[in-house]
Design a protein around this nucleic acid. Structure first.
Lengths: 137, 137
DNA sequence: TAAAATTTGCAAATGGCTTGCATTTTTTAA
DNA sequence: TTAAAAAATGCAAGCCATTTGCAAATTTTA
């Protein structure tokens, strides 16, 4: 007997992004994947559930320069995704969690030497992963 | 006798962003500033000239997570703005050029340890500058 | 200096996302 | 249980930043 209404769509979306935690998705990606899985929902419903999941801090929403849509990414609880940066492959959408020692020093460096409080959640590093870089086209 | 048509609007915009090279602007900001300066232009014209300046690599265009519009920033030729990251204050729009030794190591670290080719131009670090962080509201 | 090329303004279109509202589904609580 | 209250959904319309088609104006070319 849950206290809150747990929309089947919301759970489906969360499970899906959790399964593919090393990728980013836009609303349309998710909408299509739901359809394929027999979970057809209205696009407005997809947006509303994404909003809820972001509000609940289960997902992160971010924009990539020179692309239109919002992207969504599962925030892995045990990884502390809000305190490290992420690197996104522009082509395939692969997500790298930059939680190595070197990258973790960035926040304190930026604080100490540049006087800024870095917001890792909203910061996006973009690039090309090796595969995409090497592939033709 | 210039080879190309050099729109007065284009030059105005470039000069303006050059003057404020440590800030970012959206199309509407620029449109309003032109009006104030007696350079009234149609908003479509502003967009078209911004496109040209980005194409010519005089300006960088980027998006900030959880904001709608594109932002534009002057690419300082002598600073090599395409090979260092920038840090943007979410509140006041201040731009910090992260061309210190520490931050310059990031590209090679990301290449060596994570197998990615980082695209500094499209990567955006977001935060709060000291002033904005300390200010009420 | 006339023809060709480019830019501009205007209005309409586009695309991602949001919202209002009536309906359906779920939860609450008697 | 079951009826009222709360939350979620679908649909269509709306919103907002940006783009586009087109005719008129400006600039360049030759």
């Amino acid at each position: 007997m849950p206290k809150e209404y747990h929309s089947k769509y919301k759970s489906w979306i969360l499970d899906y992004l959790k399964t593919y935690k090393d990728s980013r998705f836009c609303a349309t990606d998710i909408h299509k994947a739901m359809d394929k899985d027999g979970m057809g929902a209205n696009l407005a419903t997809v947006y509303r559930n994404l909003d809820r999941l972001v509000e609940e801090k289960s997902l992160n929403r971010f924009k990539i320069s020179n692309e239109e849509e919002n992207y969504y990414q599962y925030l892995v609880p045990e990884m502390g995704c809000t305190s490290h940066l992420h690197l996104i492959c522009r082509k395939c959408g692969k997500v790298i969690h930059l939680n190595c020692d070197f990258m973790k020093k960035i926040s304190s460096h930026i604080k100490a030497d540049h006087g800024f409080a870095l917001d890792c959640k909203d910061s996006v590093l973009v690039g090309l992963c090796k595969q995409c870089k090497d592939s033709k086209d």
